[in-house]
Amino acid sequence: MIKENTKKQDLLWYVLIVVLLLVPFIPQVAANSFTQHVFILILLYASMSQAWNIIGGYCGQVSFGHSVFFGIGAYGAGMAVVKFGITPWPGIIIGSLLAMVVAVLISYPCFKLKGHYFAIATFAIVEIFNRLFMVWYWVNGALGLDYPMVKTGWTNFVWYRTKIPYYYGALILFTTIFSIVRFIERNRFGYYLRAVREDQETAEATGINSTFIKLSAMALSAFLASFCGAFFVQYNFRVDPPMVMSLQVSMVFVLVTILGGAGTLFGPLLGALILIPLQEYTRVLWGGLGRGTDLMLFGFLIVLIMVRQPKGIMGLINEYLNYRKTRKIISAQPEINS
């Protein structure tokens, strides 16, 4: 039965990849750069949230500090392009490795705290890094880094006239991160993550070094989140502290995953599929009402779904599937009797 489920999931996954590869060929998408923009953001936010899902969903350590790692990746790419005038790639690699180191250093003491206290500690860390980057002269402080005009193409990962390459870049990011999580989910590490989430004491008594598991999950999660940050800055041509290192950005990681279903493979994608169109289209329609309408709607939606099913949209889907299965069994019974 377990094998059957993985087979179904595999099929769904490959179909999804093929569909996403073909999206830019849809005439409506090809003609409209705004639609392309929405698709790119969906993939980016899904990837970000999936990175968060490793530590927050599977391992159950709700971190509000992920904008720090996102920001470090963004600044890595930004510094390489703006200050050193080279391609962003070395910056992306160094930034991601740095994010990993920072993640381990700050979460080691934080992991001594459990549950809500851990979440609160990570809140404070975002503020610290936000202030630090605001006053740090070397990274241009509050002014941020503005990209100069550079040659377009994959070496610089910059395009001005088209968004399609960005779409495929985001798709590569998305596929890589989702594949990593898919692999983890089915192997020892994934089971250990879930064991630590469910009951740390039992995990320890079963021979699991929970501190090591949490730290490695955090490091991997930060590494991947940092790649997303780098993509974000390459797409926006600029970076400043509030854009990448703020509680608002941290909330995105958390809310998208929780709405879609934390600790599930497709949860982050579902969450992003709802939030991004909501965010982008309300901005177009109700731009005159001022900023934040999208978040108000989103907040309302989260309350609605959480009241009904704390496991998010994936929880609702599973509930429906189970309901259908039991109904099938019940309806099959009288036939056997007669």
Binding site: R194, E198, D199, T202, A205
Partner: peptide, 11 residues
Amino acid sequence: TFQIVHSLKEM
């Protein structure tokens, strides 16, 4: 094993 059972509930 534990006196108060600690099963991994969601699994």
